[in-house]
Design a protein around this nucleic acid. Sequence first.
DNA 1: GATGACATAAACAAAC
DNA 2: AGTTTGTTTATGTCAT
Length: 679
Amino acid sequence: MFQCVFSSSVLQPHSTSCLFKHLFYHSATPASQKQPEPIYSKKTEIQRQTVRAHSVKLFIFSALQVARQLLLQQQQQQQVSGLKSPKRNDKQPALQVPVSVAMMTPQVITPQQMQQILQQQVLSPQQLQVLLQQQQALMLQQQQLQEFYKKQQEQLQLQLLQQQHAGKQPKEQQQVATQQLAFQQQLLQMQQLQQQHLLSLQRQGLLTIQPGQPALPLQPLAQGMIPTELQQLWKEVTSAHSAEETTGSNHSSLDLTTTCVSSSAPSKTSLIMNPHASTNGQLSVHTPKRESLSHEEHPHSHPLYGHGVCKWPGCEAVCEDFQSFLKHLNSEHALDDRSTAQCRVQMQVVQQLELQLAKDKERLQAMMTHLHVKSTEPKAAPQPLNLVSSVTLSKSASEASPQSLPHTPTTPTAPITPVTQGPSVITTTSMHTVGPIRRRYSDKYNVPISSADIAQNQEFYKNAEVRPPFTYASLIRQAILESPEKQLTLNEIYNWFTRMFAYFRRNAATWKNAVRHNLSLHKCFVRVENVKGAVWTVDEVEFQKRRPQKISGNPSLIKNMQTSHAYCTPLNAALQASMAENSIPLYTTASMGNPTLGNLASAIREELNGAMEHTNSNESDSSPGRSPLQAVHPVHVKEEPLDPEEAEGPLSLVTTANHSPDFDHDRDYEDEPVNEDME
DNA sequence: GATGACATAAACAAAC
DNA sequence: AGTTTGTTTATGTCAT
């Protein structure tokens, strides 16, 4: 069974769509349970799903019913002055209980809670389809509602214009106008609530906007309104004298929730307003109930929107305003395989970052502890920047720090797996991918340093002047193989070093000499005359010859190397390249640049491969440190992506990550004055 | 202790 | 002339 890589501990609301998609596709376990192979009663699960899906549907339905009721009230109000208690549609009385609860407290049903609901259950595709169809039907209905409202609005405008010309207006007329305005407010409120709801749904991957379907915010859906509240509103509206609204005023003091909004930025709300409703400008008013919106739903604080750019991973589409962003979001990032994969990627990015943060914290703690307590240790102090220190630093957190310390060689069988709060997608078996690792104390104690550590500490090495525990040859090879042409000039190699490792930003004379020395010394580096001059390439065969015992000695490691290539890091792109040469299917580009994304690319591929049925058959020959995802990573990898976009290149998200400044390629980098600061 | 891998330093030369 | 690039040698450390 597909092993759920999601950890409830790291699962954030914004990433629940990943979970949902995961569940959707794999019918995997609830995130709250991390059993490797959960066994559920399918029947029970389906029942649970059905009930919850039904609840969601009812929730939406009820919201619409309330909206209808409101409309009805207004119609009645126009005919008969007075109030009528809104009645609930009792079509489904038995099932209204949970919905009523939800409706009684609209604020309670937050997107997070919706996500919770969705997390706790597994909606089958059929159920989801039904739900979406329902929602679409509701949208249609709501559109009709909108039409009606539009007419009402025009009527109102006419009336107000008449007011301006005629001066005093009859009280009844004023009342109607007030009510209509109230209705406007209510409708706006509904729109926002609906948008909020739909957005949350969409974020969870629940909602797909069909191609021909208008964007979400254009289809308001009454939600979260309760009869009593509407009644109270109605009372307030009808009892009030005249609102200060006039035709040209966009600042209505009408407050449907007794909270006055004096926002000076009506554009914020107008951005998300229904264009139909705002055609005559009447709806440019700010939404009174904006406060009820959760903070994250605020247009300007949308996680996927900022600085006029869609922040969907790999997108960066320019959206002039929030509305266009929403359109873009719904059209370009709908619920499909790609979005799902990207969502999962993002989730793992977050997960990885959290893991990295935890590890760095732990590392810091270990460093401090070490330096404070054992500063007199003979071996710890001598060479702060030598290999010992780098090894220690690279390992202290992910592995048992004491074991990684030179002076505490106590446990040869120490776990070499990075501590994983959630399932780590980085494998220690990728350690050989970067090539020989400088052997120092760590090997002595049988605690190999993995490039996974390096990868996870990529940022660390880029920012901290800690020497990477790899040989020059390995790093040179890495630099060369990361390049698209698999060849670099000496200067480009220099740049790669300085870019990737803060350590190499100083003592340039030393390590540059070493680089040159290595290039000349090792046969694996071949100098090729080029038009521009000379470039260096890697003879992979020669490189592997250099240390045959390292890899050939352990077949399982080789196998793991191949199977774990997906989790490759920037430092093991070399292996990827070599594997590419050997026609081993690989999303090489996707794995480059960002370790996390490399891992995630594998997750995507895994998903594309339909790896949920994949078993842990490889576990027997996996290293002890393999994470669950690694364990289930398929050896067989389809070469042809399902998505045409993926076929022509890596996922956009991955591509974007590759374009991260930190991982810019040498080719892009060589134009920059890199060496100036290090000389 | 021999050997290999590696780092570091340095001398030297050719090319730029 | 100075710098960069490339080669080679020497030396030391460390692990096997």
